[in-house]
Design a protein around this nucleic acid. Structure first.
Length: 297
DNA sequence: AAGATTACCTGAAGGC
DNA sequence: TGCCTTCAGGTAATCT
């Protein structure tokens, strides 16, 4: 599943192509492309000026070389969202086409950038500067750049399940099901807990967990559980580090209790029932006096 | 009206 | 063996 770390890895793999020119474009199925004609008309002859990422969205900046009739000549962006099974792979044109190859960008160095997507949950479109600003505006904070204070403020503003909040791209951009589950395990927070009921300490743990998981996942070039490969067709390495994701019934790496799976926000959610209690942990039985009083508002 | 649920899409895997 | 059902999940649309 392409999330922050996978898309970042793909972006880094495409960055060496900056300065390359797109010679021609070939299309297969186009039902996941916003305006295929616009792509077909605008892309050929453009120069790839930069490769960037915003959350899970890839931004390819394209510079027209000789402004065509009717074209403004200004730079524009090719936006690519890999959805769930999308792949962008650099290949030699002589290599056989993988099934579900839907777009091929022929480059001026003789190579070919291919978009492959079994389920076609991915999206592709052209955007002007103004359109790009509109598309990117609703996205939330970058998990690696957000301050701890800002993170706490954003999460405690919602009464939704913390798992849902982490998946909400308008709160944080780039987290998906895998890294949400993994981060909650490291922070020892149950996925059904509500954002507004998390303590400052719990939110601090979650903030740090997300940063560590995201950084480590990027370092290991993403998680490959089903389809994900980078721009060179290579799988990532973070699947070896997974603590809960798709480990239902297997022992928790911290306490040996069997990992459980429930559905939250329509997504399989994996957690340790012992390390990630559904209710806030009572501090200490022996300190008597029952549960701690919450500070009055 | 925020929060929860469903549709989209295809292949793998499990049940009988 | 083969057919049928279920599951996987990012996002937009729809429901409550």
């Amino acid at each position: 599943m392409p999330e922050l770390a996978e898309v970042e890895t793909v972006a880094r793999g495409l960055r060496p192509l900056e300065g390359r020119r797109i010679v021609s474009v070939w299309f297969g199925k186009t039902d996941f492309i916003a305006e295929p004609q616009r792509l077909a008309a605008l892309l050929p002859g453009t120069c790839l000026a930069s490769v960037n990422r915003r959350g899970k969205l890839l931004l390819l900046e394209l510079q027209p070389q000789a402004p065509a009739v009717g074209a403004s000549g200004e730079t524009f962006w090719l936006l690519i969202h890999l959805g769930m099974t999308g792949q962008l792979v650099l290949r030699d044109p002589s290599q056989p086409l993988a099934p579900h190859t839907h777009v091929r960008f022929a480059l001026d160095d003789g190579r070919e950038l291919r978009y492959v997507d079994v389920r076609r949950f991915g999206r592709m479109r052209i955007a002007t500067v103004e359109e790009l600003a509109e598309i990117v505006a609703p996205l939330g904070a970058d998990p690696l750049e957000v301050s701890e204070d800002e993170f706490r403020r954003r999460l405690s503003a919602s009464r939704a399940r913390v798992k849902s909040i982490l998946l909400d791209q308008g709160v944080l951009r780039g987290l998906g099901n895998i890294y949400a589950d993994e981060s909650l395990w490291w922070a020892q927070i149950h996925p059904l807990r509500r954002g507004a009921e998390l303590s400052a300490e719990e939110l601090g743990r979650l903030w740090r967990s997300i940063r560590n998981v995201a950084r480590e996942a990027i370092r290991l070039r993403g998680t490959s559980v089903s389809d994900y490969v980078d721009a060179n067709g290579q799988p990532g390495g973070y699947q070896k580090r997974l603590r809960v994701y798709r480990r239902t019934g297997r022992p928790c790496r911290r306490c040996w209790a069997p990992i459980e799976r429930i559905v939250v926000a329509g997504r399989g959610s994996h957690f340790c029932p012992q390390c990630q209690p559904a209710r806030r942990v009572r501090s200490n039985r022996r300190s008597s006096g029952g549960r701690k009083k919450r500070l009055g508002s």
